[in-house]
């Protein structure tokens, strides 16, 4: 069970990202976290596993307080929380198996991870998970050789390899096509139910969220403005969360991505020149 109590986050830049957020998530419950860009969704789930430090408030996982831990305590806590990322965040140049096994990093000593000599039990678990997500044939492929949907499956396997007690999922479908998005969402929700895992899923796509999750929390400007079952999310609630103009904002983000890709080609040319330049 996850309990969040009056969580507050103010960035150094002055942005007040979270304003006293409180809720609890029961075992096996899948929560969809929706809200416009900049509402604090990413900050919230990163405050839970302390990739971002909260300013005030408490987070408790199975009655153990997470906020305030440090050093090896923090490591042991993090390994109990699996995380799935927006752009997959796989280590692109490592193989699928290495990526999945990296879920054990919080458990094994450095020499084992360095030599890639994981305990056989970990390897067995990794094989079983790859079977479960349907990637048995891609074990030794490099992660950057996979399609988007396959990469996200590796991301799921990596998170489950941690034997998590909680799953944090950050925009799992943002870079996927509609069909793959559904498959991935279905897979995530299935495994959560199989393992009685509580999960928090940040998601842009409201209808997709309604299709799969048990409960929806709407965030706006760092505050919870909706908390209830998916069918309770009517037009009024949506306007409360999103307002009217935010759809434009999302479109602008897409255009930015396209520009980034153009820049990448120019970047390659510059890099070669730099090598020559400082020779």
């Amino acid at each position: 069970m996850l309990r969040i109590d009056a969580l507050d986050k103010r960035y150094k830049t002055g942005d007040h990202a979270l304003k006293g957020v409180s809720f609890t998530v029961e075992r096996g419950q899948v929560v969809g976290l929706i809200g416009p860009s900049g509402a604090g969704k990413s900050t919230l789930i990163r405050c839970i596993n302390r990739l971002v430090e909260s300013s005030r408030g408490k987070v408790l996982l199975n009655d153990v307080e997470i906020t305030g831990m440090s050093g090896s305590g923090l490591r042991r806590m993090r390994r109990r929380i699996g995380m799935i990322f927006q752009e997959y965040a796989l280590v692109e140049r490592l193989t699928v198996m290495e990526n999945v096994l990296s879920g054990r990093l919080g458990y094994v000593p450095f020499w084992r991870s360095f030599l890639r000599r994981y305990p056989q039990a970990d390897v067995d678990k990794a094989f079983a998970l790859l079977d479960r997500v349907g990637l048995t044939d891609h074990v030794d492929k490099r992660a950057d050789a996979l399609s988007g949907g396959q990469r996200q499956r590796v991301g799921i396997a990596r998170a489950l390899e941690q034997d998590p007690e909680l799953l944090l999922v950050d925009e799992p479908t943002a870079s996927l096509d509609p069909k793959t998005s559904r498959q991935i969402m279905r897979l995530i929700c299935e495994v959560c139910r199989e393992r009685q895992l509580p999960a928090i899923i940040n998601i842009h796509d409201v209808s997709l969220a309604q299709m799969f999750v048990d409960r929806i929390i709407g965030l706006r400007a760092g505050e919870v403005v909706f908390d209830g079952p998916p069918d309770g999310l009517d037009h009024a609630a949506l306007t409360e969360i999103y307002g009217e103009e935010d759809w434009n904002q999302m479109r602008a983000e897409k255009e930015e991505d396209a520009r980034d890709e153009e820049d990448a080609a120019a970047f390659e040319a510059t890099r070669r020149e730099r090598m020559e330049g400082i020779a």
Partner: peptide, 16 residues
């Protein structure tokens, strides 16, 4: 690899 692999005891080594 079409046959279901045995669940336990499969070795794995990092490819060179």
């Amino acid at each position: 690899m079409s046959a279901t692999p045995p669940v336990a005891g499969r070795r794995w080594r990092r490819p060179p």
